[in-house]
């Protein structure tokens, strides 16, 4: 655990509690992808708890192809300047130098993201080495626990970003939650076997079995396009929702952003979800996952 004492006081920065604590503050909220300072302001005004600063939303990364990397520092600075809510940004899986750069720029949270092109095919970033907290994607419990072992302070479902299709996010949320419930039914001896199957450290497996939840917040990402999608993720157990392309690829981003914030809060109230879903205009055009070749799927990136 990194506990760098600051120069002037005995204050400890970058501790596990400070990193996970930051993730806890973002619960019951919506984190929105933005590509310009103007979009960041719209997101802040709509009640986003944080923004994800990037050059292209996943739908455009998907369309443009090629290698997707960390954003230009000028672009990230522009968004950090524009809003007072927390700013997140993405690095490629395993690209710890991009992470060093983002930490230097002062972003509040780093997403080691499969949406960008991976930089290392064997190792994710050692996230304990950083003061800034990290979020990582997962498709199942084993993947989530390996990321936590590496120091992730938050886990999100991977879903399938840039498709406007929630089916993969649903699959990942159900899988993670079902596996957590299963751990709760195992005896001591069986937990050792489970750790082996999950390819995750026994101590974390045991902790999850005892808590009945992950030791860090579990959010959802990848394909949320409507208020009902956001509420679906909440009812499936996500404590907050990331919305990528879904807002600023839609007809009326300000209204949709506001509607998704409300549906995320009142996720158990169909009356509210119905009301905020009325007359929202065009949702982003979705992609049917059957039409997506395996090589174009992001969720398989990382391990």
């Amino acid at each position: 655990m990194a506990t760098n004492a600051s120069n002037t006081t005995d204050n400890a920065v970058g501790t596990q509690r400070v990193k996970r604590g930051m993730a806890e503050q973002l619960k019951n909220g919506v984190i929105m992808d933005v590509v310009t300072p103007e979009q960041a302001k719209i997101a802040e005004d709509a009640g986003a708890v944080a923004v994800m600063a990037l050059e292209r939303v996943p739908a455009d990364i998907r369309k443009d192809g090629g290698v997707a990397r960390m954003s230009d520092p000028d672009m990230i600075d522009g968004i950090v300047e524009a809003v007072s809510i927390p700013v997140m940004a993405k690095v490629r899986i395993g690209h710890f130098v991009e992470a060093q750069v983002l930490e230097h720029l002062g972003v509040d949270f780093i997403d080691e993201s499969e949406v960008l092109t991976p930089a290392d095919e064997a190792y994710h970033i050692d996230k304990w080495a950083f003061t800034v907290p990290f979020v990582c994607g997962a498709t199942n419990l084993g993947e989530a626990l390996r990321r936590i072992a590496e120091g992730a302070a938050m886990i999100r479902s991977k879903g399938e970003a840039g498709t406007g299709n929630v089916i993969e996010a649903t699959r990942h949320m159900r899988s993670i939650r079902a596996e957590i419930r299963r751990l709760g039914t195992l005896d001591e001896a069986e937990l050792f076997g489970a750790a082996k199957e999950l390819r995750a450290p026994y101590e974390i497996v045991k902790e999850v079995a005892t808590l009945g939840k992950l030791p860090v917040p579990l959010f959802s990402a990848g394909g949320v396009a409507t208020p009902a999608d956001a509420a679906l993720m909440r009812q499936l157990g996500a404590e907050s929702v990331f919305v990528g392309s879904g807002i600023f690829k839609s007809g009326d981003p300000a209204r949709r952003a506001d509607a998704i914030v409300q549906a995320t809060l009142h996720y158990e109230d169909p009356g509210v979800i119905a009301r905020v879903s009325r007359g929202l205009g065009e949702a982003m055009v979705g992609i049917n996952l059957d039409d997506l070749a395996d090589s174009e799927r992001y969720a398989g990136r990382g391990w």
Binding site: D10, A12, V13, T15, V18, G21, F109
Partner: peptide, 25 residues
Amino acid sequence: QTESFEAAVPVAGIGEEPFDAVFIR
């Protein structure tokens, strides 16, 4: 967030032992 920190803070009314306080932004 990179400046968020933990510190031992004496708080009046809760006893002698300082409180392990977590400050987030």
